[in-house]
Simulated assay, not measured.
Amino acid sequence: MTLARMIATLLGAGYIRPAPGTWGSLVALPWAWLVHVIGGFPLLVLATVAAFFKGWWATAKLTEGSDDHDPSEIVVDELVGQWIALMPLSLASWRMGIDITVMWPGWIAAFLLFRLFDIWKPWLVGRADRRGDALGVMLDDVIAGVFAAIGVLVLAGLYHAR
């Protein structure tokens, strides 16, 4: 397995069927927890940026010369989007000194909202996906992750405002 394929498929998680994107998002969860535990919110941000650029490179390599700009086994974009969706939890945990695992309802919300926006592809998510290139593959999940992160913040605000 080439380096590009290892990165793009998250060490082969993209080959799990059915729903490889969902599997990629699930794989992203424990990795996000590990990154957060090691270095808090700042490391999660740095790791997300690094994963974005590595994923963009790997996606471009794997789709070079192909008509399919977004093969289902490429799931590194799901990792990036899922990590963005989790950032409000990581930030709150890091700033307030709260164990991130006690925020488990937020993890579930981040996962479900990210999958919803990634599958539904509303507005800017769909626009990015329609680019038809490796950058579009990555950007649609970045935007879906941002939408999910906003949803996590709204739900947390509603829950904690009671």
Rank of each mutant, 00 (worst) to 15 (best):
T2C: 02
L3A: 14
A4L: 08
R5L: 11
R5Y: 00
M6V: 08
M6F: 02
A8T: 01
A8M: 04
T9I: 05
L10P: 01
L10K: 00
L10Y: 00
L11A: 15
G14P: 07
G14L: 08
G14M: 08
Y15L: 07
R17A: 14
R17N: 13
R17W: 00
A19T: 01
G21N: 03
G21K: 01
T22N: 09
W23H: 09
W23P: 02
L26T: 06
L26D: 04
L26W: 00
L29G: 12
P30T: 13
P30L: 09
H36V: 05
I38G: 11
I38P: 09
G39N: 04
G39A: 04
G40D: 08
P42L: 03
V45R: 11
A47H: 04
T48S: 14
T48H: 07
V49E: 10
A50F: 13
A50R: 07
A50L: 15
A50K: 10
F53M: 12
K54A: 14
G55E: 07
W57I: 10
W57V: 09
A58H: 08
A58W: 09
A58C: 09
A60W: 11
A60V: 08
L62P: 03
L62D: 03
S66F: 00
S66K: 15
D68N: 15
H69P: 14
H69C: 12
P71C: 11
E73V: 08
I74F: 03
I74G: 06
V75Q: 05
V76S: 10
V76Y: 04
L79P: 05
L79R: 06
V80S: 12
A85D: 03
L86E: 11
M87D: 10
P88I: 03
P88E: 04
L89A: 07
S90H: 03
S90F: 05
S93A: 15
G97S: 11
D99N: 12
T101E: 10
M103L: 13
M103Y: 10
M103Q: 12
W104G: 13
P105C: 05
P105E: 02
P105M: 01
G106W: 01
G106K: 00
G106T: 06
A109H: 00
A109E: 02
A110T: 03
A110R: 01
F111G: 06
L112S: 04
L113A: 15
F114G: 13
L116D: 14
F117R: 06
F117S: 12
D118H: 02
D118S: 07
I119Q: 12
W120F: 14
W120K: 13
W120C: 12
K121M: 11
L124T: 06
V125A: 14
G126D: 11
R127Q: 15
R127M: 14
A128P: 04
D129N: 14
D129M: 11
R130F: 04
R131P: 04
A134H: 10
M138S: 05
L139S: 06
L139C: 08
D140R: 12
D140A: 13
D140S: 14
D140K: 10
V142R: 02
V142D: 03
I143V: 15
I143D: 10
A144P: 02
A144V: 02
A144K: 01
V146P: 07
V146W: 05
F147K: 01
I150Y: 06
G151W: 00
G151C: 08
V152W: 02
L153N: 08
L153E: 09
V154D: 10
V154C: 12
V154Y: 08
L155I: 14
L155H: 03
G157S: 07
H160T: 14
R162W: 13
